[in-house]
Design a protein around this nucleic acid. Structure first.
Lengths: 343, 343
DNA sequence: GACAGGTTGGAAAGCGCTTTCCACACGCTA
DNA sequence: TAGCGTGTGGAAAGCGCTTTCCAACCTGTC
């Protein structure tokens, strides 16, 4: 079954040139080859259907055409948007994207990076949100160090403290601006569905939101923690409703949580925005088709993926930070406060 | 900067064994090695931080740890759900997923398959919907043949005629059952947003829907073609509205088109389902948070990805067909017909 | 005690490329 | 005419593994 593959030696032999010449013609080399030989080689290569063996090339060159992309969950629109950006840039550069999904397990992140290193991946984009757990963070740092020591490039999306090229959204400032905008709508009692306690992104957004409220001399919000997922938003919202806080506006630290929360509110017979206003963060594409439209802070997700990829593929090494700013987008899910709120 | 990588030779030398023995210990071999040597090798490998060079292994073994996954657009929830299933299975098997996005360009599909072949990928899952264009189909067939001739395995999701292992959803039967269910709601005049003319999946769903209507002795639906995307659904719906057909129920051949169509209806001041009912196909996860809930035909998307992956990774070669059936799910977007319909 | 059969370790030949040398042939200048 | 730089082709040495041989050794049996 397994038919013999055409190798460069055969092409060289058939074309009547040396292996070196064939290699120089078929794969970019600085060396010149006369037009006559060049044509002969190209011709026979085509005729024989020659296809270079990428593994052999990677071995000889000590670098592959692989770019890693690490996400928590590719089915999450936040990550799949970023992935779209990364793959576009990588494929333009003739590279190939290796997708690793961590399932929000930091240990898995380390493992995947390890694998990518074994493959001599040229670069990797880490798009998951970072944990603050000490031990794993150290292991991750080691793995990143090993990866770069080997000549690989690393970029992160939205996690500043990795010591690598990073694309960071304005989590703090975005959340702060959102808080101000919501306060200006007239809300006074806020609740925040704040994600996991050890997630930097979640913490930053919470902190920014608090700062915004403080700026308007409003009291600190009620905070309920939960998973950074749709279901996490759902259950967090349930607990919030049970707590009977009287909040008139809920901020979920990301859109998928907000969507889960909206479902929970609906299930409890609460109307958005008549009974309670709600806002998220990210502006994932999904929101376009949500009714009522979800107020949020827009992040250019695909663009962020592209930028991260360019950082490691086109630019020289160096731990730069590219900041992207979030833009407050108010939609139908937020309005002036109702009399009652969450009770 | 680039620190010397620890190689197997060094491990062998330090452990005082031959290269062969070191290789046998560290990478699965049928051959036995005495416990003493084994421990020595494992110990020094750990101490030196040895990491096998995947390219070298791939070259020596003539097969890599790569599994390709070809999708049209990873940001489309349909594909990202399938991708989640594929990556889960691949990662369980210690393999690595290479993500290729075709942007619905069949030529690109061929190119990506070519690249994957150069990488000696062990298998590839083609998840895009197939074009019916002759020439490209032939090129694709050639590429697939070359891939399998080389020992690689190919599976397809939802495109029966590739001559490879395939996971096919019951497009025809699902659409037919949906048509019957909608007819039983009392609708008589239907419209279909039918996707591109040359897409097998779209054609099958349209045909199934027609068959269902025929079964209930209802007239053929108005058919409007358009892109298989959210925006395609939006513009198709606009054209449908302009056509003033009086249809009371719209079937979009996939969910993202249906979502676009709902947006178009909303923008025209039409209410769903009061003015017009609408249904989709696939049951992408996004639908959970849509209000009103979209009626659809549920497909187990992640499961389909898993099955396709298992087909090429665990089972012996052979062009099998795994059928998965769609289940009609009626939600709030469909109700008994209004007096007016689309006019 | 000799010999078959089974284990275990090592030498070395690849796998298919890239790239460093080296050799040679030019076209110049001095 | 000698000498020199330059452009071009080829031989061969890797890149880091796997795997085939072969040799050595250990049983056990007759």
């Amino acid at each position: 079954m397994t038919s013999r593959q055409v190798t460069l030696v055969e092409v060289a032999k058939q074309a009547g040139v040396s292996l070196a010449t064939a290699s120089r013609v078929l794969n970019g080399s600085t060396r010149q080859v006369s037009d006559e030989l060049r044509e002969r080689v190209v011709g026979t290569a085509r005729r024989l259907g020659y296809l270079p063996n990428a593994s052999a090339q990677a071995l000889a060159r000590n670098s592959s055409a692989l770019v890693g992309l690490l996400v928590h969950d590719i089915a999450d629109p936040y990550f799949s948007s970023i992935a779209a950006g990364v793959t576009r840039v990588a494929e333009e550069a003739g590279l190939v994207v290796v997708l690793g999904t961590t399932g929000r397990d930091p240990g898995r992140e380390v493992d995947l990076l390890h694998t990518l290193r074994a493959h001599r991946a040229r670069a990797v984009v880490i798009a998951g949100s970072r944990t603050t757990d000490r031990a794993t963070a150290a292991r991750l740092a080691d793995e990143i160090a090993a990866f770069t020591a080997q000549g690989g490039r690393v970029a992160a999306v939205s996690q500043a403290k990795l010591g690598v090229d990073t694309v960071v959204p304005g989590n703090r400032t975005g959340a702060r601006a959102l808080a101000v905008a919501l306060a200006d709508l007239g809300h006074q009692r806020f609740a925040v569905l704040a994600g996991p306690q050890d997630l930097v992104v979640a913490k930053d957004r919470l902190a920014g939101f608090r700062a915004g409220l403080a700026e308007r001399d409003l009291p600190d919000p009620v905070v309920v923690h939960g998973d950074f997922t749709r279901d996490g938003g759902y259950t967090a919202a349930q607990r919030l409703i049970a707590a009977d806080t009287g909040a008139t506006c809920v901020f979920a630290v990301n859109d998928v949580m907000a969507m889960g929360a909206m479902a929970a509110l609906r299930d409890h017979g609460l109307r958005v925005p008549e009974d309670v206003s709600i806002a998220g963060f990210d502006d994932i594409p999904t929101l376009r088709d949500l009714a009522p439209g979800l107020s949020t802070v827009r992040l250019p997700l695909e663009d962020m993926g592209e930028r991260a990829a360019r950082l490691v593929l086109e630019d020289a090494p160096g731990a730069r930070t590219v900041r992207v700013t979030g833009e407050v987008v108010l939609r139908a899910s937020t309005s002036s406060p109702s009399a009652t709120g969450l009770r």
